[in-house]
């Protein structure tokens, strides 16, 4: 596996391999010395042409814990803001010798263009391309669900996950649908009709406009952020109406199964898609998702650059 551009590139063994590797690496992250020498002397470039704090820091921490050298390249401080093309940016980084590029970009397909055009020779890791995919997010979400509800199983057979919100514009939803289905989970997408793509009938999931009817049956509910811009783009009348029908509030939380998890990729709009009370409740694993993200991203870097899944005994 040379690149990680889309969940669709993974077969079930590879996906489970990354999750298992992340499980092993999370032991390092729980210890006092959070360091492995695996990627010493290798260079990982974070090419973030779109704003992000959480994902970039997560990948940076992951690379550094594997002893790689990290170079951060973000849109604001760079010549991307002066109009330099993706091609020229890539070729400049290549000239500096990057073994891997973690790219986040506002254009769907940007990661694939980087990989296919061979402007750089290293591994390309998609950290979110437009509204297409966010593979590492889906992997850390699956890791989180498996850790709590997997009952020792390697996959997610028998579990039911709801993903709620702006599916149409969500790369997190697209990657999650692919990965959860690959791992055997049942998925229900919940959204107003205006925020569901035409063509979704072919996706391996169910679709519902009615949040309340879905909630009592799921093992995990994943809330997606609703961008403020969607209101001016005529997707729904106003924030209040959106919250009323699709917001996860305390009343809805009480209809969940006792062991059900509450998840959110962040950043949250407290009060819009998720109430503060719910975000801070005992069932919420939202902050744990963030720390799992570092282990999962370490696993991705390990698998792509060290060439194999981590064995249990090798640490």
């Amino acid at each position: 596996m040379k690149h990680l551009l889309s969940i669709a590139d993974l077969n079930v063994q590879e996906a489970i391999g990354i999750l298992d590797t992340a499980t092993e690496l999370s032991r390092i992250n729980d210890g006092q010395i959070k360091k492995l020498p695996t990627l010493r002397g290798r260079t990982v470039v974070n090419l973030f042409a779109e704003d992000s704090t959480r994902t970039r820091i997560s990948f940076e921490a992951a690379a550094k814990r594997l002893s790689a050298d990290v170079i951060n390249f973000s849109a604001k401080g760079s010549s991307i803001s002066k109009g330099e093309s993706l091609k020229d940016t890539a070729m400049t980084l290549q000239a500096m010798g990057a073994d891997a590029v973690v790219i986040r970009h506002s254009a769907s397909g940007a990661a694939q263009r980087l990989a296919d055009n061979q402007w750089m020779s290293g591994a390309v890791i998609n950290a979110g391309d437009g509204t297409h995919e966010h593979p590492s997010q889906a992997l850390l979400d699956a890791f989180t669900i498996r850790k709590h509800l997997g009952k020792g199983s390697s996959d997610l057979q028998g579990l039911h996950v709801a993903i709620v919100g702006d599916i149409l514009h969500s790369r997190v939803a697209r990657s999650n649908v692919l990965l959860l289905a690959l791992l055997g989970a049942k998925i229900t997408l919940v959204a107003p009709p205006t925020l569901l793509p035409i063509g979704i009938e072919k996706w391996p999931c169910a679709v519902s406009y009615d949040f309340d009817s879905v909630l009592p049956y799921v093992d995990s509910v994943m809330m997606l952020r609703v961008q403020q811009e969607r209101m001016t783009e005529l997707f729904f009348p106003n924030a209040r109406e959106y919250s009323r029908y699709y917001g996860l509030n305390a009343e809805r939380m009480r209809t969940l199964k006792p062991a059900a998890l509450i998840m959110h990729p962040g950043p949250m709009n407290r009060g819009l898609e998720i109430s503060a009370e719910v975000a801070d409740s005992a069932r919420s694993v939202i902050t744990e998702q963030v720390s799992n993200g570092v282990s999962v991203r370490m696993a991705i870097l390990y698998v792509l650059l060290a060439g194999s899944s981590l064995d249990v005994g090798s640490i």
């Binding site: 769907s108 397909g109 697209r174 035409i198 063509g199």
Partner: peptide
């Protein structure tokens, strides 16, 4: 084109 493929690729559709 707006359809199955645009839904999958995350590109805005032209119905």
């Amino acid at each position: 084109n707006e359809g199955e493929i645009s839904a999958r690729l995350g590109l805005k559709g032209w119905p």
